[in-house]
Design a binder for these strands. Structure first.
Length: 765
DNA sequence: ATTCGCAAAGTTTTT
DNA sequence: CTTTGCGAAT
C-alpha cells in the first residue's frame, strides 16, 4: 500500500468491489490511477462524473484521508451533483467539493491580509463591479465617451484572468482601449481595496498570486490538498490553471477530466490549450479516454460526430455506443419564428397528451436568452408548465439587492457600492449633490463613504438639512450593526424594520411594490432555512458569500414535471430524452459577434455539439425563414453548421405555414430558396396545432390579483378544475407559480400566476 | 429632492 | 421590443 493510515478515516466507505464493479475497464483504469498526473478525456455521456466520484470513493477506500482530497468544479450545480453522488458512495466523508470561486473565497478569507484585504471582504457581482468601475472612471476623470463600461470591464476581466495585476498590465501601443484600461485599472483596483471588496476575477487572481509569491503558504496547501481533481478542465483559464498547478507541485497527483470538444467558455478566458497541452505540462501523465457513450442513440451521436469533425483544434475522439439506433435526427425548417415555437410546443403537447412522454422529458435550447420569449408565449397558449433556467433572476431584483446591500454594509462598513445603493433607499432626502460632496470629502482624506458621513460636520460645502439627514442615516446604521450577530433572519427583519424599507413598500401605492414584499418574504424564508442549517449561529458573512456566488442555474429542479427552457451554455452537463435546438441560424448560431476569427467559430460549433449531445432519444434542430427579433421581422439564413451534418441520415422536414390569423403582408414568393441540395428528400408537412382539450382554458377574464394574496393554504377556484387549495409557492416575479391540490380529484397542478385563471376564495388562516 | 417621462441604446454566453 | 439612463418638470 502506498498510503499510511495515520489519519484513519472516521466513517466507512463502500467496499472496493462496490466501487469498481459497476465500471467499465477504462473507467476502472481512471479510478484506480491515484498517484501521479491523470488526464481523463471524457466524451459526452461517457460517465465522467461517475468516474470522478468513484475515484474519490476508491481513494478513501484505499486509506487516503478525505482531508487530503480536493475536487474543483465550475458550477454549483456540478458540485452539488458530485456531493450527492459521493454521499451515496462514501457517506459522511468531508471531502472538499466545490467551485473554484468558492474554494478561492474560502482561502482568501483565511489569508486576506496577504493581499491587503480584511477577512470580512465583500464579493461584488458583475453589476456591483460595473458600478465601482464607473465610479473609478469618474473619480479619475477619465473620458470614455468612445467606448462602453462593458468593454472596459471585460478588458480588465481579461487582464485579471491572464494574471495581470495593474502594474503588470501593458496596453497595446496605440490602442485607445488599452490606454483607458491602463489608467483606470489601477484606480479601479484601489477602489476595490478601499472598499474591502473583490470582484469575481479577483477571487482567482488573488489566490493565484498569493500562492505564487508565498511559497510557504503554497507548500502548506500543497501538502494539505495532496490529491487535486478538476472537472471540466477544458474550461480553465490561466488563473485556474495556475492554482491547480501550484497545488500539485510537491504532491503531483493532479487529475483532470474534460473534453476539448465541450469547451464553451473561451470568451471568459478559458484556454483550450490547458487541456490540449496537459500531457506536456505535467510529468508522467496517464491518459484515459472514455469514448463509450451511454446517453444517446447512434443516430444522435453520428450527427454530433459529423459536426465536430469540422473543428481543427481538438483531440480526435471516436464516440461509440451500443444503444439501439433510435429515431433519425430531425431537421425542420419553419416559415416563421412563431411557427417554430408553435410547432415545437404542439409536438410536445401531443406527445404528452397521448401519454407517450412526460413534460420533464423535453428540453428546448437556444443560443441567446432573448429567444425564449416566443416559446414561452406558445407554452402559455397551451397552458403547459415549464421552467426557464435564466441566470440571476431572483438575486438581481432591486428589492433583493437592496436588502442584501444593507447586509453587506453591516458586514463590511467599507463597502461603498452597497452604501451608495441604499443610502437613499427608502428616500431620506440624500440626493445626488449630497453624495457627491460626501464622495469628494472621502476621496480627499482617503475615507470610506460611511466614515466620511460620520464626520459630516467637517464638510463645509454640506447644507444643514443634508448634514442631519446623513447623521440620521449613520444612526440607523449603527443600530443595525449592534444586532449583527443575531441569527440571520433576525438581522434581516431588523433591516426591514429599522430602515423603514418594509413600511415604505407596505404603504406604497405602486402595485408592483406588493410583489416586491412577496419577494422579500421569500428571501426571509431563505434566511430562515440558512439559520436552521447553521443553527442560527451567526454566519452573515457565510450567507453573503453564498448569495454572491450563486447563479441560479442551481434553481433548476430536475424532479418537477415541466418542460425545460435554457441556453445552450446552461445545458452543459445535463441530459434529456427529447431535445429541441431552435434558431440554428446564421448570426445566432454561430453568433454574429463570434464570426471574426476561426477560433470563435469553432467554439460556436462546440456549443452546438454540446446541445446535440444532451439528447438521449430524440433530437430536433430547427430554423425559420423569417424571425421576429428586436421587434421586427427579418429574413433568416440557416446556419452553415447545418451543412456539416450527415443530412442523408437525417429526417429533413419542410414545414408549410398553416396559421392564417396574423397578418402576412410580405410577398415572399420572390425570396431565395434556401433548400440545401436537390437530391434531398424533403418532406412537406403541414404545421398543425393540436387542440389540447383538457388543458386549453378559455380566459374570458383577465382579472389580476396581487401576487401576495396567493399564499400557502389559500383556497382558489379554477374554471376547469374547480376548487382547490394552494400547497406550494415557487419562483419569483414573472415566474411566480403556485401548486394547487384540487378538491375534486386530489391532483396537484402547477400554474403560473401571471397567466393562470385562478381566483382566490378564502384564506385558511 | 423626487418623480416622471422620454429617448436612446443595446441586446451572448456566466462564476 | 425591452430595459436602462438621462434630463426635465414639479
Amino acid at each position: 500500500m502506498f498510503y499510511n493510515h495515520s489519519m484513519s478515516s472516521p466513517a466507512h466507505s463502500s467496499e472496493e468491489s462496490d466501487i469498481l464493479q459497476p465500471l467499465t475497464p477504462s473507467q476502472r483504469e481512471a479510478v484506480k490511477h491515484i498517484e501521479g498526473s491523470l488526464l481523463i478525456l471524457a466524451g459526452p455521456g461517457s460517465g465522467k462524473t461517475r468516474v470522478i466520484t468513484h475515484r474519490i470513493a476508491y481513494m478513501l477506500n484505499q486509506g487516503v484521508s478525505a482531508h487530503h482530497i480536493l475536487a474543483l468544479t465550475f458550477t454549483n450545480k456540478a458540485a452539488d451533483e458530485m456531493k450527492l453522488r459521493l454521499e451515496r458512495l462514501a457517506p459522511r466523508q468531508s471531502v472538499w467539493v466545490g467551485t473554484f470561486h468558492r474554494f478561492c473565497a474560502k482561502l482568501l478569507r483565511q489569508h486576506a491580509d496577504l493581499v491587503g484585504l480584511q477577512e470580512n471582504y465583500t464579493i461584488y457581482d458583475s453589476q456591483d463591479s460595473r458600478r465601482a468601475l464607473k465610479q473609478s472612471l469618474d473619480d479619475a476623470n477619465i473620458d470614455f465617451t468612445h467606448t462602453s463600461i462593458d468593454s472596459i470591464a471585460s478588458a480588465i476581466s481579461w487582464a485579471k484572468n491572464e494574471l495581470m495585476t495593474p502594474d503588470e498590465y501593458r496596453p497595446r501601443p496605440g490602442s485607445v482601449m488599452g490606454g483607458i484600461v491602463d489608467r483606470v485599472y489601477p484606480e479601479y483596483q484601489r477602489h476595490l481595496q478601499r472598499s474591502n471588496a473583490v470582484d469575481f476575477d479577483d477571487l482567482l487572481l488573488y489566490v493565484a498570486v498569493m500562492l505564487k509569491e508565498n511559497d510557504e503558504l503554497r507548500r502548506i496547501l500543497d501538502e494539505r490538498y495532496q490529491y487535486v481533481m478538476v472537472d471540466e478542465y477544458q474550461d480553465t483559464n490561466a488563473a485556474q490553471y495556475t492554482i491547480a498547478r501550484v497545488l500539485s507541485h510537491d504532491n503531483p497527483n493532479l487529475a483532470v477530466a474534460g473534453d476539448p470538444d465541450q469547451s464553451i467558455y473561451g470568451w471568459r478566458g478559458a484556454n483550450l490549450n490547458n487541456i490540449l497541452d496537459f500531457e506536456h505540462d505535467f510529468p508522467k501523465v496517464q491518459v484515459v479516454r472514455l469514448e463509450q457513450n451511454y446517453r444517446s442513440t447512434p443516430n444522435i451521436l453520428r450527427v454530433a460526430d459529423h459536426l465536430i469533425a469540422y473543428n481543427v483544434k481538438r483531440k480526435e475522439k471516436s464516440l461509440f455506443t451500443d444503444r439501439p439506433e433510435g429515431e433519425p435526427v430531425k431537421l425542420v425548417a419553419y416559415p416563421t419564428s412563431k411557427d417554430e415555437a408553435d410547432g415545437i410546443v404542439a409536438y410536445i403537447a401531443e406527445q404528452v397528451e397521448s401519454g407517450r412522454r412526460n413534460l420533464r422529458d423535453f428540453a428546448i435550447f437556444y443560443r441567446i436568452n432573448a429567444l425564449s420569449r416566443a416559446v414561452e408565449a406558445a407554452l402559455r397558449v397551451f397552458n403547459i408548465p415549464y421552467q426557464i433556467v435564466k441566470g440571476l433572476e431572483f438575486y438581481q431584483r432591486k428589492e433583493i439587492k437592496d436588502i442584501l446591500a444593507y447586509l453587506h454594509l453591516v458586514n463590511n462598513p467599507a463597502c461603498d457600492v452597497a452604501l451608495r445603493r441604499i443610502i437613499n433607499t427608502p428616500p431620506r432626502k440624500i440626493g445626488k449633490k449630497t453624495i457627491e460632496r460626501l464622495n469628494d470629502h472621502a476621496l480627499r482624506y482617503g475615507l470610506t463613504l460611511l466614515d466620511a458621513a460620520r464626520e459630516v460636520d467637517l464638510i463645509e460645502a454640506m447644507s444643514k438639512p443634508a448634514k442631519s439627514a446623513l447623521k440620521k442615516f449613520v444612526e440607523i446604521y449603527d443600530e443595525l450593526r449592534e444586532s449583527a450577530i443575531a441569527p440571520l433572519a433576525d438581522v434581516m427583519r431588523d433591516v426591514l424594520d429599522k430602515t423603514g424599507y418594509h413600511n415604505w413598500l407596505m404603504y406604497s401605492d405602486a402595485p408592483e411594490d406588493q410583489d416586491r414584499l412577496a419577494n422579500i418574504e421569500e428571501l426571509l424564508t431563505g434566511a430562515e432555512e440558512f439559520d436552521e442549517q447553521y443553527n442560527g449561529d451567526g454566519g452573515l458573512e457565510e450567507f453573503l458569500e453564498q448569495t454572491s456566488l450563486v447563479s441560479d442555474t442551481d434553481d433548476w429542479e430536475a424532479d418537477t414535471d415541466r418542460v425545460t427552457l435554457m441556453t445552450l451554455h446552461a445545458a452543459k452537463g445535463l441530459e434529456f430524452p427529447v431535445v429541441f435546438i431552435m434558431a440554428v441560424e446564421q448570426g445566432l448560431l454561430p453568433h454574429e459577434r463570434s464570426s471574426e476569427d476561426a477560433e470563435q467559430e469553432e467554439e460556436e460549433r462546440r456549443l452546438l455539439f454540446v446541445g446535440i449531445t444532451r439528447a438521449e432519444e430524440e433530437l430536433q434542430l430547427s430554423y425559420s425563414r423569417y424571425r421576429t427579433f428586436r421587434g421586427r421581422r427579418r429574413d433568416a439564413i440557416p446556419s452553415p453548421f447545418l451543412m456539416e451534418l450527415p443530412r442523408e441520415q437525417m429526417h429533413i422536414v419542410e414545414c408549410e405555414r398553416s396559421f392564417e390569423d396574423n397578418a402576412w403582408d410580405d410577398d415572399w414568393s420572390d425570396e431565395p430558396d434556401v433548400k440545401f441540395s436537390s437530391d434531398e428528400q424533403i418532406e412537406q408537412v403541414e404545421l398543425t396545432t393540436v387542440p389540447f382539450d383538457d388543458w386549453e382554458v378559455d380566459q374570458p377574464f383577465q382579472q389580476r390579483f396581487p401576487a401576495h394574496v396567493f399564499r400557502c393554504g389559500v383556497s382558489v377556484e379554477h374554471p376547469v378544475y374547480g376548487g382547490g387549495s394552494i400547497i406550494e409557492l415557487r419562483g419569483s416575479a414573472r415566474n411566480r407559480s403556485v401548486v394547487v391540490r384540487f378538491f375534486n380529484d386530489g391532483i396537484e397542478r402547477t400554474f403560473r400566476l401571471s397567466h393562470a385563471p385562478l381566483i382566490p376564495i378564502a384564506s385558511a388562516e
